[in-house]
C-alpha cells in the first residue's frame, strides 16, 4: 500500500515539473592521422637550413582541449600548475574534452598520412592539443628509435656547406607538449580527419626546432654525420624545443 502511494506521489511531483533526466554531453569520433604537409625545409637562428629525411616521435595519449570560457591569460595558470584535476562544481585547468589514448610513433616522413586511430571528442570549440611523450621501448633493438623518444635525420646547409646529421632525443617521463594549436569547431556532424603536423619553424615566434645548434662545431670532420644524442649540449637544446607547442599543429586534412 505504502509503495504505490509514494510512487504515485513521486510521479505526480515529477510530472508537475516535467522532470528532466540528466543529459550527457554529445560525443563524436574523428580519425587522427599523421600529416607531414608542414614539414618543409626551414632556417635556424644560426643560419642553417634544415632538411629532414626522418622525423619520428614516440608519443602516448593525444588529448584535445577546449578553452571554453577561460580567458586566454588564464591558461598561464594552467601551465604553471600542471595537475589538471577535475572536481565537482569547479572548472578544471586544461579542459580536456577529447582524446586518442594509446602508444604511437608519429612518423612525418615515411608514415605521412597513416591513421593513428579514432579519437573521441565532446562537441565544442577546440583550441589545443596535448601530446604526451614516451620512450619507444616496444621497437626492435636495431631500430634507432628503440628506447628513445625522438629520432631526426637529415641535412643542415649553410653557405654552401652541407652536413648530414642524426639526432636521438630522450625526454623525461611525463614530458608533454601542452597547448599545440588545434582550432576546430566540432559538432555532431563533424567527420574530419585530424592531421597531427610538425614544423621546423614557427613563423609567429620565429623559433626553429634546431635553433642554437651549430652544426659546424659538431662536425667530426671525418665525413661521418653529425650526431646529437643524450648528454650533448645540443641534445638539451633540441629536447627543450621539441616540447614547445609552437612546432605542432592539429588541423583537419
Amino acid at each position: 500500500m505504502k509503495e504505490p502511494v509514494l510512487s504515485v506521489l513521486s510521479l505526480a511531483t515529477c510530472l508537475s515539473i516535467a522532470c528532466a533526466p540528466s543529459q550527457e554531453a554529445t560525443r563524436v569520433e574523428l580519425a587522427v592521422a599523421v600529416d607531414g604537409g608542414q614539414l618543409v625545409d626551414a632556417p635556424t637562428d644560426l643560419g642553417w637550413t634544415i632538411h629532414l629525411d626522418a622525423a619520428r616521435v614516440a608519443t602516448g595519449d593525444l588529448e584535445f582541449t577546449i578553452q571554453g570560457e577561460m580567458h586566454a591569460l588564464a591558461r598561464l595558470w594552467d601551465l604553471l600548475v600542471p595537475p589538471a584535476i577535475a572536481h565537482p562544481g569547479h572548472y578544471a585547468g586544461g579542459d580536456v574534452t577529447g582524446a586518442l589514448p594509446g602508444s604511437f610513433v608519429l612518423d612525418w616522413i615515411a608514415g605521412d598520412g597513416v591513421e593513428l586511430g579514432r579519437a573521441e571528442l565532446l562537441t565544442g570549440n577546440y583550441h589545443g592539443c596535448n601530446i604526451a611523450f614516451r620512450r619507444a621501448d616496444e621497437l626492435p633493438a636495431d631500430d634507432p628509435l628503440a628506447g628513445h623518444t625522438a629520432q631526426f635525420a637529415g641535412t643542415a646547409t649553410k653557405d654552401g656547406q652541407e652536413l648530414a646529421f642524426t639526432a636521438i632525443l630522450d625526454l623525461d617521463v611525463g614530458a608533454s607538449v601542452i597547448g599545440a594549436p588545434f582550432d576546430l569547431d566540432v559538432d555532431e556532424a563533424s567527420d574530419d580527419t585530424l592531421g597531427v603536423q610538425l614544423r621546423l619553424h614557427d613563423d609567429v615566434s620565429g623559433a626553429a626546432l634546431f635553433d642554437g645548434v651549430d652544426f659546424a662545431a659538431l662536425d667530426p670532420g671525418d665525413g661521418s654525420p653529425v650526431t646529437i644524442g643524450p648528454g650533448d649540449p645540443a641534445h638539451n637544446l633540441v629536447r627543450r624545443a621539441l616540447q614547445s607547442h609552437v612546432f605542432y599543429t592539429v588541423a583537419p586534412l
Binding site: 580567458h71 588564464a74 595558470w77 594552467d78 577535475a86 572536481h87 569547479h90 572548472y91
Partner: peptide, 8 residues
C-alpha cells in the same frame, strides 16, 4: 582541487 586560478 587542481589549484588553478582560472579567469573567465
Amino acid at each position: 582541487v587542481s589549484a588553478v586560478n582560472i579567469e573567465l
